[in-house]
Design a protein around this nucleic acid. Structure first.
Length: 468
DNA sequence: GGCAGGTGTCATCAG
DNA sequence: GTCTGATGACACCTG
């Protein structure tokens, strides 16, 4: 046995809004005090008649002037930049001559004295409205009448004080009282009057009166659903709105008629979708950008950041939303922005400053709920899209990483094959230099080279390999 | 008319 | 128990 020593080489990552502006009120409309010189358009008349046909609405009495006139201006506290209420509408066309509000008595008892025609307001007093918070603060009105305040407080006192002033109002007996009071002449709606997406909270609204729902018709629970009130008045307004869409030349009139022009900026919980869309526009509708793009984040209270959306400035021909129409119909004495965006404590405090009936309170709470949910849904969808984008980016990154690893494995495989080939060549070369005692070369078939731990290389016959 | 995207609303759940 | 935000589901609208 010979010993050979062979050496191998090695391979080697968001105020108080303060004083508001005046305007023609739904109250005036509903009580038959048609604004002097109101538009005579037949469509307007139809809408008017539809409104007047709502007996329930006629029954709504504007609370004593003390409760509205003197209290609605009472601000809670500075809340939002005034300009966010979007009272500046530079593109408003001429006010119809008939709308000389100064001569109209419809302001008396009007729950929306702030809803003066945007056009006339702009022409007469540009500082009115929300543009000037300091001015608004200076115009705070007298506090709520003691009667109104005490009555409401007595109804709403809870263990949480102002925290939930009317938690008991939106439920239970008070609701029955409400239907009893309001349900005497509820119109019967046909099935096709119902919107499939009614927008009414089932939890806060009474059941619909229908043959299928006999319980509703029992004494003390008259067949009035809030949706009837909502629906009937909103139907007429919606119809009006649809017509207004068709005929833009009616815009100015329609806004004055239903004060939608002001409502569009005053009652809209959503962005005002009217941009420089002048009343003078008479034909082509203006393409509206995505509402989501119009939301903005603002600070409503000093030191506290609240995410709220604000209304873009300007615009007066945006159709009123359902909630806007409902709020208008029920004479909710504060803007949608407040209803939706005020912190809960401020919101409850606001409610204590007005005398609202159960229907109004329920509507306000529904509006607040829907408004907040709307924002939540928008945020949710935004997060969803961002999440999708993030996942897509991560997927792309992981695919790239996978491709890189596959490529790397391929290179390692090639390298390994090369090394094996090289080793085979060296093996053969070593064998070619080996000779036995007789000077004869060793056969690769009969012998193999093996290395010991100490680095020594041995020539081992296959017969010995088999034994091991 | 069908389709896709956007939006509002409701129901439900969790904190 | 109530309130509120998040979210799925649905309906509607629009291009």
């Amino acid at each position: 046995m010979c010993f050979l020593f062979v050496y191998f080489s090695n391979y080697k990552e968001v105020a108080a809004p303060g004083r508001l502006c005046g305007g023609v009120s739904i109250h005036a409309n509903l009580t038959g005090v048609r604004p002097h010189g109101a538009p005579q358009d037949s469509d307007m008349d139809v809408a008017w008649q539809e409104l007047m046909a709502i007996t329930e609405l006629q029954e709504f009495q504007v609370p004593s002037e003390g409760s509205y006139e003197s209290t609605q201006y009472q601000s809670v506290q500075p809340m939002a930049p005034a300009g966010d209420y979007g009272m500046v509408q530079p593109h408003c066309g001429p006010l119809p001559a008939a709308w000389d509000l100064s001569a109209a008595d419809t302001h008396e008892g009007c729950c929306y004295p702030e809803e003066m025609s945007t056009c006339s307001r702009l022409s007469s007093n540009t500082e009115t409205g929300y543009e000037n918070p300091e001015h608004q603060l200076g115009q705070r009105m007298l506090p709520v009448s003691s009667h109104a305040q005490s009555s409401l407080m007595s109804m709403t006192s809870t263990s949480k004080g102002h925290r939930r002033p009317n938690a008991c109002l939106s439920q239970g007996l008070n609701r029955h009282m409400m239907w009893t009071t309001l349900g005497q002449n509820a119109p019967v709606r046909s099935a096709d009057d119902l919107e499939s997406d009614s927008g009414l909270s089932l939890g806060s609204s009474p059941p619909l009166a229908s043959p299928d729902n006999p319980a509703v018709g029992t004494p003390g629970y008259h067949n009035l659903d809030m949706s009837l009130v909502y629906k009937d008045c909103e139907d007429s307004m919606a119809e009006h709105t649809r017509r207004a869409r068709v005929n833009y030349s009616m815009d100015c009139q329609s806004q004055s008629y239903l004060h939608s022009g002001e409502h569009a900026s005053y009652f809209s919980p959503q962005p005002n979708l009217s941009y420089p869309q002048s009343c003078a526009v008479t034909s082509h509708p203006v393409k509206q950008p995505s509402p989501a793009a119009q939301y903005s984040v603002m600070t409503s209270r000093v030191g506290t950041h609240h995410t709220v959306f604000t209304k873009p400035q300007g615009g007066s021909s945006t159709p009123m939303s359902r909630d806007e129409r409902r709020a208008a119909a029920l004479k909710i004495p504060f803007p949608m922005e407040k209803i939706i965006n005020l912190p809960v404590d401020d919101f409850n405090e606001l409610l204590t400053q007005y005398t609202l009936n159960d229907t109004q309170l329920a509507l306000v709470r529904d509006i607040r709920r829907r408004g907040k949910n709307k924002v939540a849904a928008q945020n949710c969808r935004k997060r969803k899209l961002e999440s999708i984008i993030h996942l897509e980016r991560e997927l792309n990154h992981l695919q790239a990483q996978r491709d890189h690893l596959v490529q790397e494995r391929l290179e390692f495989t090639r390298s390994l094959a090369f090394i094996k080939c090289r080793l085979t060549d060296l093996y053969k070369e070593v064998f070619s230099h080996l000779r036995d005692q007789d000077g004869q070369p060793y056969s690769v078939d009969d012998y193999s080279l093996q290395q010991t731990p100490d680095g020594s290389i041995y020539l081992v016959p296959h017969s010995m390999d088999n034994r091991e």
